[in-house]
Structure formats: structure tokens, C-alpha cells
Amino acid sequence: MSWIKQISYQQATGALKRIYDKIKGPDGYIDNILTVHSLRPHTLTGHMSLYKNVLHHSNNSFSNWFLEALGTYVSFLNECQYCYLHHFEGMKRFLNDNDKASQIKNAIENNTLESLFTEKELAAFNYSKKLTLDVINITKNDITILKDIGYDDGEILEINQVVSYFNYANRTVLGLGVNTEGDILGLSPKNKDDENSWSHS
């Protein structure tokens, strides 16, 4: 759960219940990272809107598994076990290839990403690492590197937003002591065409 009070789906009323009804998965299930917002439902709305649009929107250029891989990597760098476990499972579901998912997990944990990813993909991971661990030293040159290797401005924005979202999510989790107790790992919104469709499955 977490270090602060959380209101469950069964206990929720009013605006919170309406938001929960949009999010809930099987049997009223809602991730702990979301119920931790329950004392301020408007922040839950903000979190879900950002999450859905950054990771699960049909106008994104990148495949879901790659965006989840970037998020898994950022979560590993931040030592956020909660998001690391959740989004590794999400990546694995989108990949639909357990062997490749295991290889990616091993590469992340052993700092051997170059063994699996192309030079272009590695550039995205390198930018993700610098934005996460060394943000004060980010310069225009870091964007130039991404452009020179073939990313356009929109793709760079997508990478930036995924990395920024996961840093936000990691700090929410780590700062409030959110854990995976009772969570179902790897669920996510499936309707990519409706940005207001938040239901998890």
C-alpha cells in the first residue's frame, strides 16, 4: 500500500468513485500508484491523463513495448522497484515475446543495452539516462545527437515525455512508500484511440 491513507474502490464516494469507475480493472481493481492520489482526486485525474497520453495514445510514433522499455529503464535507474516490476510486465505483454523481454531485463540490470538495441535505440536510452541522473548537464547538443541519428522533433518530444513521466511516477511512489501489495502487475489502458478511456485490463 503506502505510508499515507488510501481510499479503496469499495470505500470511495462522489468524484473519487466516478474517477475510479473510469480506471478500474477486474473486480474493481486499481493500482496502488493510483489509489495513493485518493485524498486529492484532482491529482489522480492529472496523473491518469498524463500517463494515458504519454504511453497509450494512438498518435504516438513509438510502439508501446519500446515506450515501456524506456520507462522500465528509468525506473531501474531510479531504484523504483514498484514501477520497474509493473512496467517490465507491461513491456512483456506488449512484446508478446517472453524470451526477448527477459533479455531486455537482463540487459537493463547488467548495463549491456548495446547487446540488444540498435545504435538509434541506444541513443534514446542514453538520453533517458542523462535526463534522469544528470539533468543539470542536459544541453542542446543532447537533442542534436538524437536528431543526427534519425529522430525527428516529435519523436524526441515523445521520448522526453515518457522519461519525464516516469521520473514523476517514480518519485510519487518512492516519496510516499507505495508498494505492490495487492497489485496486479502489468495492466494498462487498451483503447488507444480514446484519451478518456482509462479502464485497465
Rank of each mutant, 00 (worst) to 15 (best):
R40I: 12
P41Y: 02
P41Q: 07
H42I: 15
T45R: 05
T45K: 07
G46E: 09
M48Q: 14
M48L: 11
K52M: 03
K52V: 01
N53M: 10
L55S: 02
L55E: 02
H56S: 00
H56F: 13
H57V: 00
H57L: 05
S58D: 08
N60D: 00
N60Q: 03
S61A: 06
F62E: 00
F62D: 02
F62W: 04
N64L: 09
W65L: 00
F66A: 02
A69L: 05
L70E: 00
G71T: 02
G71N: 04
T72A: 10
Y73T: 05
S75C: 03
L77V: 04
N78I: 01
Q81V: 13
Q81L: 13
Y82Q: 01
C83F: 08
C83K: 03
C83S: 07
Y84F: 15
L85D: 13
L85W: 05
H86I: 04
H86S: 13
H87E: 03
H87N: 08
F88R: 03
E89W: 01
G90T: 15
M91S: 00
M91I: 06
R93D: 07
R93V: 05
F94V: 03
F94D: 13
F94P: 00
D97P: 08
D97A: 02
K100N: 06
A101F: 04
Q103E: 15
Q103K: 15
Q103W: 06
Q103Y: 05
N106L: 12
N106A: 10
A107N: 11
I108T: 02
N110P: 00
N111C: 07
L113H: 09
F117L: 11
T118D: 03
T118Y: 01
T118H: 01
E119K: 12
K120D: 04
E121N: 05
F125D: 04
N126W: 09
Y127R: 06
S128L: 06
S128V: 11
S128M: 05
S128D: 09
K129C: 02
K129S: 10
T132E: 02
L133E: 14
L133R: 07
D134L: 07
D134K: 13
D134E: 12
V135G: 08
V135C: 10
I136K: 14
N137T: 15
I138V: 12
T139A: 09
K140Y: 14
N141E: 15
D142A: 12
L146S: 06
K147P: 03
D148T: 13
I149D: 12
I149W: 09
G150S: 11
G150M: 13
G150I: 11
Y151A: 10
